[in-house]
Design a protein around this nucleic acid. Structure first.
Lengths: 193, 193, 193, 193
DNA sequence: AATGAATGAGGCTTCATTCAT
DNA sequence: GATGAATGAAGCCTCATTCAT
């Protein structure tokens, strides 16, 4: 469906710019290049459209990370690839990512439905972490919690860079985040003298 | 100013529950126990009220962390205290913290004014990190970026625990986060055969 | 545009009755027989609606006078026709005429836009006066000023009659006003001893 | 009462600028240099204040014209003086005059009380006209109507000059208006072949 | 006499949704 | 499938008025 994809793009665009509640259906229609009635032909209403965007987008993110990780069996390498993939996806889909992260703190009404998609994604990350723990690469810790933390670390920094309007060197930022997550901030080099 | 503090409490409460855009000024008034007109007597409008909440709240958080850190000169200890303080503040001001994190991903219209307050807070954290780097406790890295990441790590996890409705063992969670930030996720224990 | 004409009629009606500021948009909608939202679909807001009414109405008046004058080449006869037409238009559109005269003394905010329409109408009258001067029928004088005065003379009297609720003998009133404007109030009859 | 005069001045000022309904009591207070509560100490409310302004102002105008006319017994000279006095009063009290003329087309609610003051003033003018007719200086005509017309003629022109922001040569404008009212617009000079 | 913080009824406007075409 | 004129519930905000000081 041509029009549906148009709507997906336009809606993500305008929602990222103005927020879910402040963007109107008129604006969504205009940005998408379709008539307002067409939105209601394809979706049951605004909330339905939002739900679709979030689910569809999270699924795309999930898939993107899954593909990146696929080629390796080593948990550490998988982590590295997942983190780099996250950063790249954020960079390439800035609008959607802002939505994604807005969604994390949805008001309690909308949260319920959306947090399921997100938790599925957390599950993907914690799966990697879990296998890392089992294979002795990562220290023993609550995997879910650590996955959540990893997501927070990567997303808050990525979004900050996006919002600051800086162009992002994804490679370099990915390395930094991987290093930070894996080895922490502590200096392991012996101090000279 | 009795009424203004009432409004601060009531507004934080209802905004955390329904979101900035879905909570109405009528609800803010009702929750605050003042008349609607009183809101407009003290604030220029909804956006002005929101800006005040964010600024004032961030300032309180900033002060709380500053107090916690005050007793120590050692950067590592300061970091530990700051992280623990953050977790405690989040636990004690769940409503405001949700607002805070909603603010991080504000739509672009509202972001501008708010991100100043937030960046001031990042600056406070990066000050500690910077001194840690100088004293050789932390490895050399971009301090601002790392501070942002630390904030993401702590806040996203804290809020997840809050939203899951779990009661939080602040002591234990603080330790975990400190460990994660400082030493990372890697297992440093030799694997036993 | 069926609805727009309905709104024109209803708005003129209610505004003449209650004044621009005291009539509410709810009342305009009700009097027009359309939903409130429809007002905002066709106009940008109350001020925009008012501006439209004044412009459109003045245009209709202008056209009415233009038609009345069209058949004659003689400036004096044109003046007579214009004055009679004014009186008739006032009688037939009492509501709008009250608006028109309210508009003349708009507060300074609204004046700017409206006075343009009015001045265009003044220009029409002063065109007639000017040709009368050129042809030696009228004495030499500032035509614009005299046109303004003619409008004041006719409209203030007409509206007074309207507001007093009197039924108006247009023919007779027109004659009186034409006589007053052209020959003034002075007695030219020799006084009989 | 110092404060009451302050309020008269301030209220006339702001009402002329913004209109009766668009000017707020806050603005009246600010422009007058008194506290809002003080307005309500001296007047029963906004409508009461407006009624006071209109009555008081019309009385001042009436008195001004009465004084100007006082020195003469000749109706024609009285007319000349009255017209000149009107123009001067308009020039010296531009703000109030705008109010006065706004008042003429008050909405029907407010009109009732105010038109009494105005009609008293019309009565003053028509008294002069009546005596002019009796003495054969003016032709026979409905005096009230002619007085109304005279007021319209003078006020609409005066206000136009005021609103155009032009500085007014009162002497000259008065002469023009007197001539226009008395002798009309017709050319009495024989056309030269 | 004078003040100004507080109030709440009521106004203007927005916008998600419907429906006839 | 697609459109956009029309709708009305609901939100933000204004402002005349009150009252304790």
């Amino acid at each position: 469906m041509r029009k549906v994809e148009q709507i997906f793009q336009g809606a993500v665009d305008i929602f990222a710019e103005k927020g879910f509640d402040r963007a109107t259906m008129d604006e969504v229609a205009e940005r998408s290049g379709v008539a307002k009635g067409t939105l209601y032909y394809h979706f049951d209403g605004k909330e339905d459209l939002i739900a679709y965007l979030m689910e569809e987008g999270t699924e795309r993110l999930s898939q993107y990370v899954r593909d990146a990780v696929a080629g390796s069996d080593d948990p550490t390498e998988q982590l590295r690839r997942a983190i780099h993939a996250l950063v790249r996806f954020f960079d390439q889909n800035r609008d959607f990512c802002q939505l994604l992260l807005m969604g994390v703190w949805f008001n309690r009404e909308r949260q319920v439905q959306f947090r399921q998609s997100l938790h599925k994604f957390y599950g993907q990350l914690s799966g990697i972490i879990l296998s890392g723990i089992e294979k002795g690469r990562l220290r023993s810790m609550p995997a879910e919690l650590s996955a959540t933390g990893l997501f927070g670390l990567v997303s808050v920094i990525s979004l900050r860079v996006i919002l600051d309007g800086d162009s992002m060197d994804c490679e370099q930022l990915g390395d930094f985040l991987f290093e930070q997550y894996l080895n922490g901030a502590k200096n392991t080099q012996p101090e000279h003298t």
